[in-house]
Amino acid sequence: MDLGPYLLFASLEGLVHAAVLSLIALGLSLVFGVMRIVNVAHGEFFMLGAILAWWISGFVFGSPAIGFLLALIIAPLIAGVIAMSSDWLILKHLKYDPEATIIATIGILYIIQQAVLMTFGPDARPVEQPFNYRLDLYWFGFSAYKFFVVFSAIILLFSVWLVMAKTKFGLILRATQLDSETAQAFGIPISTVYSLVFGVGAAIAAVAAVLIVPIQQAHYLMGGEPLLLAFIVVIIGGLGSLRGTVAAAVLIGMSDGIISVFFSPNLAKIIATLFVVIVLLIKPNGLFGSEKT
């Protein structure tokens, strides 16, 4: 293959990375934006989504599409419920103190990860693609499923934007984000909102996992890498800025995908970090973050 088509191939791979990363980082950023806490266990909810997708698809016979659709509904629900209960059982009692919350979510990280290891074992688990169709792009064939992943991600991102901008629930979230005490004074049930947001954040990560798992396989240690990338993304994009998060996710996801194809995935992350270093030196609040006084 010539360089041109090869570059096209790498860019398409990068697009898939970017799509999935946008969703993961969006979940992280949403939680931070509304609750002002960082969920270090975020990657484990992603992993949970992937493992559950494999587990659910094991029950379904016939077309893999049915199992996939079921997983797409059930896995995020379970991940969301687990997240909500950990918020309710743990984070609420820490009063969302930033430091204590971060330490507690590290605890949650290990509990989920090791519980999955105990329950489902250490093996990597493949999931069949819901449909198997290759698009002929003249120089090479490219899985139509990967395009489906990209489109699903775009639709989901758009829906989140729609909910945030146009619905009453979105208004409640934005009010809570601006000033939780005033919001509470106006009768917004803050603790319910927090639980919901924490659950939705985790569910979005789980959706990303269900989408990617037919390409990637599920494994109990798979949560670390997306968490690292999501951290890189939110630092570049500005913590809590949804617009910045998505823009940075596309940038980092694309370059991660392209560099991974041409060189190595580890090098891609090393280069992404150098980029973070530059951002920290020039704009410590992130490229899209606003200066706080």
Binding site: A104, I106, G107, I108, Y110, I111, Q113, A115
Partner: peptide, 8 residues
């Protein structure tokens, strides 16, 4: 998992 529980 011990580490996780201890942290919590």
């Amino acid at each position: 998992i011990i580490v996780g529980i201890a942290l919590l």
